[in-house]
């Protein structure tokens, strides 16, 4: 993981490319499971990395780049979900379509549709820490930074999210 704070534009660009190569795949997966749509997830990835690029000069050299990027991605996803909720009454998308069909068609790599459907039933505030902990492997300390809450808060959300997932996954089986 890069440690030194970039000075020149070339150094910043190099650091950014390095961060992108390392984190764009997991961040895309995280956003895909939060937003439940490939196109929206890719747009969110682009927006999140653009924000990161503009804020790169403010990043400390010894900062946790992964937590920093996930925080930007989470805030971007929350903004998009908020906007999506505001315009949910518009008949532009059919959100009631079969999620299994949507994931089968949208993502060739993701075959565990039942797990994803169970995740989809979780509220975002519980889904995000569970995904970060169990899928992306972040520590509770990092999740606390990403979500901007305390470690105990992360543990509480994780426990509730786990129980909700067990219930949702048990119904699906």
């Amino acid at each position: 993981m890069p440690a030194a704070q970039p000075v020149s534009k070339a150094e910043r660009d190099a650091l950014f490319v390095e961060l992108y190569n390392e984190f764009h795949q997991p961040i895309f997966g995280y956003l895909f499971r939060l937003l439940r749509d490939r196109e929206r997830a890719e747009d969110a990835v682009q927006e999140a990395f653009a924000k990161a690029y503009r804020a790169l000069h403010r990043l400390d050299g010894d900062a946790n780049h992964r937590a920093w990027l996930y925080r930007i991605a989470t805030n971007t996803a929350y903004d998009r979900l908020r906007r999506q909720r505001l315009i949910a009454w518009l008949p532009l998308r059919d959100d009631d379509e079969d999620p299994a069909l949507r994931y089968d068609q949208a993502d060739d790599c993701d075959v565990n549709v039942q797990v994803q459907q169970a995740l989809d039933q979780l509220p975002v505030r519980y889904r995000a820490p569970l995904l970060l902990y169990s899928v992306d492997g972040l520590s509770t300390e990092e999740i606390a930074r990403v979500l901007g809450i305390s470690r105990s808060g992360v543990k509480m959300r994780l426990l509730r999210g786990r129980r909700m997932f067990i219930e949702a996954h048990g119904k699906g089986e």
């Binding site: 490319v17 992108y20 764009h24 795949q25 997991p26 895309f28 997966g29 895909f32 499971r33 490939r38 997830a41 890719e42 990835v45 682009q46 990395f49 653009a50 690029y53 993502d107 060739d108 790599c109 993701d110 075959v111 565990n112 797990v115 994803q116 995740l119 569970l130 995904l131 169990s134 899928v135 492997g137």
Partner: peptide, 20 residues
Amino acid sequence: LSALTPPCPSPTLRERVMAA
């Protein structure tokens, strides 16, 4: 959850991000 297959972003995503 850890066994979930990571979704594959489209090949053009990198170009889009770099262009932006």
